[in-house]
Nucleic acid binder design. Structure first.
Lengths: 338, 338
DNA sequence: TGGAATTGATAAACCGGTATAGCTCCTGCA
DNA sequence: TGCAGGAGCTATACCGGTTTATCAATTCCA
């Protein structure tokens, strides 16, 4: 027989549906002997719970969602999401909870998805990425009473549970390393200005500048695209007093920047040092290979999944878990200025 | 009131649950006036169907699955999947069907997922990628009676429904272009040998060689990684009679190959022309930018979703839809041999 | 030894929809 | 005038689980 139900098992075991349910869920109400017998029969008939039936009764769907609001064009080059996803899954698989993934164009669409998911009871909770300043999603999710975890957003008052790494410390470690090499003109090609992590990184550069004796340390924001990364680099390198080092907020922009430098005859690392804030295969494929900040993205995802599950279990607590600090992997693109 | 049910609507409208169900699903059984009234009330109460309840009764979950069996490490760099995913979603969103995504390590794990999905009724169907020769997943899915669509696998006898592009024609167009430029020693750095598309591409090169007067046209298989792509390139360029052009089965390998050429002092495109079988931002970021075969991956995904929905609606038919032929985008990495 | 508490089980309600049998009223036609 | 047939709607069973009220049999304790 295909797809046995608990009624079938009850029949075979000569007990009631309720007894089977108790036995399968490890809750009191049946004797150990009976439980054992029921479990054996269920195993034998290779029974699996019908997810919809369970969801209907227990009002939990054993499924969580994740929406990525970025144009597909800029996605995909970044191993970041692939690793994050794998991590999230590994965190969920232990409880055999499934993941719904959606890629949408913008935040408005993302919020629509949350509304739909909430009203259709499709997920028990969601994982948020790319937190912005005054992010509208936070209030929306609270209103929907949909458990959520923010990745990368350090929690403040009234914030959602989160898993975060210290962007400030990470940026400081990069700038301090460059300053120690002797660089005094360091530019920072940042990402979208309204992302919280972008702001934190910009502030870190700004705060460190006087202490490290940096002459000039501009942070220039972009849309994270290779095109803008290249354009800004071109502008920076065309200045009379050009920077001797550039820090890029993503690997893609760093690679685009390297291309511009080569095109303009600026030697890397001779005339210009380059650091990428994100590591990936991309940075390693380049010549010279790029010095980059490595984060354990997989672990990040795994932790986010764990925190989400705990939040679903008890929505009153607000967990803020700190992830291990990223480390700088030095490769060929950095050297003392000449 | 939060989360109204059809019973609430029925109450408000002064009709029975059944009438509401008829009205909301656009099926006969209620008068136009009543239907209109019910719809208005449902709208007003912002009612949405409870997915689990619907799934339980109608035995369809409005959800499809996709499993990608590749180590997370090699994933992510390839924009291919991101675009494919976006396309699949756009094909599904019309019917507001959700997508379950899973990244696993190998095919065994993938099959396990299908079994679980089938027994738990979590998906109505699945989308398969990376079809291999004698792919065990095909029989498994048939046994599970889980509707499926294969992406990239040209359907034969007893095959699953599919969406495919003509790999053979595509490869021929590349080789013919190179031959027309004057190349006679063309090497092909292929992907994993047991992928069907790899085999078709290899055969295309082999078949075209005599007709085009190619002196030497070896196809060398790899595991799709940048490391093996680089290693094979190193070997090819160390030969006494080295190829004047190399075709790579993926953008990542092509980029790795370009790196090796630069490292060995082989000028591109002066001494060596390079073509990538897949296009992406990667190929455009390089210097020189790589000539590449552009496929409309987004559309590919969209079509796969459509075919899957049709297959779910009527599992007896086996659709094989051909996607538009890919086109060669010529950039800076190809030129006549010197 | 009798009544209370506990254990192990059952029957039935319930979750929120869909599907179906059946009922009522109205219309059309012989 | 009578009756077949259909439109419009209701009542109810059902999907496959979980949960609760109930109950019989046993154990505990005064």
């Amino acid at each position: 027989m295909a797809r046995p139900t608990i009624a079938d098992i009850a029949n075979r075991a000569g007990v009631s549906k309720g007894a089977v349910s108790f036995a399968l869920n490890g809750r009191p109400g049946v004797s150990d002997a009976t439980r054992e017998r029921i479990l054996r029969i269920a195993e034998q008939m290779s029974w699996r719970p019908h997810s919809a039936a369970r969801a209907l009764g227990a009002s939990r769907v054993d499924s969580v969602g994740m929406v990525i609001a970025r144009p597909a064009r800029t996605l995909g080059v970044e191993p970041f999401f692939a690793h994050l996803l794998s991590g999230v899954q590994s965190g969920l698989s232990a409880e055999s909870i499934s993941l719904q993934l959606l890629i949408v164009e913008d935040t408005a669409a993302e919020i629509e998805v949350y509304r739909r998911w909430a009203s259709e009871h499709r997920v028990d909770g969601v994982i948020l990425v790319d937190l912005t300043v005054k992010d509208p999603r936070v209030d929306e999710l609270k209103a929907l009473e949909l458990p959520a975890v923010v990745i990368g957003g350090r929690g403040g008052k009234g914030a959602l549970p989160s898993v975060w790494a210290d962007d400030r410390e990470a940026m400081l470690s990069i700038v301090e390393y460059l300053a120690a090499l002797g660089h005094r003109r360091i530019a920072h090609v940042a990402g979208t200005p309204n992302f919280q992590h972008t702001q934190r990184r910009i502030r870190a550069v700004k705060d460190a500048a006087p202490r490290l004796g940096l002459v000039d340390a501009p942070s220039l924001t972009t849309d994270f695209s290779d095109a803008e990364g290249a354009a800004i680099t071109r502008k920076l390198l065309s200045q009379a007093q050009r920077p001797t080092a550039i820090v890029y907020d993503s690997d893609v922009m760093a690679v685009a920047g390297l291309g511009v430098a080569m095109e303009m005859g600026v030697a890397v690392p001779g005339d210009l040092s380059i650091v990428a804030f994100d590591d990936s295969i991309l940075t390693q494929l380049m010549h010279p290979a790029l010095t980059a900040l490595s984060r354990d993205t997989f672990d990040f995802g795994r932790q986010a999944a764990e925190v989400l599950l705990e939040t679903i279990a008890d929505p009153t607590q607000v967990i803020n878990r700190r992830s291990p600090d990223p480390v700088l992997t030095v490769r060929e693109s950095t050297a003392p200025p000449t």
